[in-house]
Amino acid sequence: MATSRLQNAQTRLAYLLVLPATLLILVIYIIPIILVFLASLTDYTLVSDYFEFVGLENYRTMFDDEVFANAVGNTFFYAALFLPGAFVISLILAIAIQEQKQFRSVLEVLYFLPVTSTLAAMALVWAALMDSGQGVINNSLETFGIPGVNWFGREEVVLYSLAIISLWSIIGFNMVLFLAGLTSIPQNLYEAAAMDGADHPIDKFFRVTWPMLGPTAMFVAVTSSITAFKLFDTVAILTQGGPDRASEVFLYLAFLEGFEYFNMGYSAALSLFFLGIIFLFALVQALFTDRNVHY
């Protein structure tokens, strides 16, 4: 009897202790997601008091819509430009800096600086740098006899320009993640590799560094992918989706539909689709990270 009373008391205490966190998760994540899902089943707009349930109509519209297809296409194209750079450049920098003894901390800080700055403000700086007329970049190119580029004005260039800005802002962050991963690789594995004859940099990389970096690499790949699909602020500030929808990416389209055209129902459907993609990435990470840990 006494033990069961004690157990009950402990159970009550346990529920009491998880209550605040549970409430927060419900209020901040779960309930809004449910509300967005419900909204996505309506034709609710901000300009009309009246709305009704339309079922999956919004989703049907979405998949028939050329604008939606264009936004998804732009997003994937941008991700394909951004991701390899965000991954490979950061990794190369991390390995190079890891081997530095003297200037390591200075270089770390320098590369990390863009992460600490506000991207919205920095986007304006980049706009000035990349200005087609008086921008520093075009002026420098012209000094070497290379014709300037209309960075934000040409349909086929604008996504590259946005990718360059995003790379600048994320490389330092990824590099620090990779550095943490590199630091945790036991030094004696490299020594064993040297004894075994794997002392060539390429062998060291493929035999020790890369396999041991597995969990870090997975984390960097997933978080960078999410960042790529989240592209919004530079688009909103610099191009507003232009020229001619060439930089209209997924999240910007959801924003346009919701807050420019006030089609809240449709915008909710777009947002849920976006959430689904992010969820897939998170799932991939959760499934693979545990399996790839060797130590």
Partner: peptide, 9 residues
């Protein structure tokens, strides 16, 4: 090596 330094992967 003292802790063997086997390649875990």
């Amino acid at each position: 090596f003292q802790d063997y330094a086997l390649y875990p992967h």
